[in-house]
Design a protein around this nucleic acid. Structure first.
Lengths: 219, 219
DNA sequence: CGAACATTTTATCGATGGATCAAAAAGGAT
DNA sequence: ATCCTTTTTGATCCATCGATAAAATGTTCG
């Protein structure tokens, strides 16, 4: 009872390899075997080497596809559109962004590649900083009526990172640890935003009980 | 030019295996080879099997040591001591807790084992929830003069998780991604606490602009 | 010293994983 | 049906890995 319809076009086969490899590596890590991968495709293992010179090249292709996925959603304009209230923009942005990255596949590949210390991971983190967090800070400062300086301070960026990381960690808890989480993701984002925005505002008005500027710039 | 002083006592050799294995697995993941491990010890590979029945048993030992490490710091009483201001307690707790877990070794082993979906990881996450986050919520409610119910609601827990995860992610960024972070860890914790506490307080006083209870309990 | 014991090494087995190459099989064109 | 091209397979190589057994070396104590 063999498959009749074997042969696929070169492009289709290639993308099929990348897709199934993403699934396999997400579950097993990049140590997953090429034979297990071939089995998932219903083909034999040497066929892989007709489409990729080595397993490492396949892995690089997986990176590319996974890391570039979230960027195709066009969320970047959402943040800066000042015709709408900031809270609403942030809510919408984070719902869209987490829709893109909160999947078992994405998060696991992301963490596995992060543990390998790859350049593409550093690139992604840098992009999050520049395209997301810096903008959030800028908009928050604008909202709070603070003077606009060229770049956010390291301390402000850190605040945004902690906020962003908190949301990110929701995905890790749900899809990596498979721990019970608040099911309503939108509510989680909303509550986190309430805290963050209220806290940011309180601090901006100098109501800190420590004897220093609420958000101190690092010299 | 061979080593003269080879032979170690059984106990010393065993702990040496576990220690070096922790280092190795932290860097390479649990796929790290037993031969590489032996090389780190300056012994031959079969010696491992005189102290551990299998590689898996060695790995279990590594888990035990790593996961139990942070618990030996006795931080758990810090949180509930109401003779001191809440903010100070939280600051001190998180500085101590992150001193214990913010190391390259700990974080990498934690993430690798989390990706394997192990029971010990679930146990640890549950412990964080019960021993840390639930207490924080309880103390925050007390501070805000809110009525004390038996257990924190799922939404409140989620709030604490997002806060906690944000701080945790600082360690991931620094030691896993090796990304530049705000160097002053204490300041990061302080700022995150300011935001969290201020936000929590604002919300508790019903100043949310959404038409609902600030922190809504999930039915 | 030298016997008794514990520790470490040498040699090796079987399984698995990445990679190669020639041969076979499948589809399309004439 | 026959030929040609492209895809796929079967067989295999070599390195590595976990694990085992037996030999050898160091340690202890009479």
């Amino acid at each position: 009872m063999k498959r009749k319809q074997r042969r696929l076009s070169a492009d289709d086969r290639r993308t099929e390899f990348v897709n199934k490899a993403t699934e396999l590596f997400a579950e097993e890590g990049f140590g997953g075997g090429t034979r297990a991968l071939a089995r998932k495709l219903g083909v034999t293992q040497p066929l892989l080497y007709r489409y990729f010179p080595s397993k490492d090249d396949l892995i690089k292709e997986v990176y590319r596809k996974v890391y570039l996925g979230p960027l195709e959603t066009g969320w970047d304009m959402l943040l800066s559109d000042r015709t709408r209230p900031l809270r609403q923009r942030l809510q919408e942005f984070y719902e869209a962004y987490t829709d893109a990255i909160f999947t078992r596949k994405w998060l696991r590949i992301y963490l596995y590649s992060g543990l390998k210390g790859l350049d593409i991971n550093r690139w992604y983190v840098g992009m999050v900083k520049d395209k997301i967090l810096s903008r959030i800070i800028r908009e928050c400062r604008h909202e709070a009526g603070l003077p606009m300086q060229g770049r956010p301070s390291a301390a402000e960026l850190e605040l945004a990172w902690v906020f962003h990381g908190g949301i990110f960690y929701y995905g890790v808890r749900k899809y990596i640890y498979e721990a019970p989480v608040l099911e309503d993701k939108a509510q989680m984002i909303g509550d986190a935003l309430d805290i963050f925005l209220a806290g940011f505002e309180c601090l901006s008005q100098g109501s800190s009980d420590r004897g220093q500027t609420p958000i101190k710039a690092v010299s």
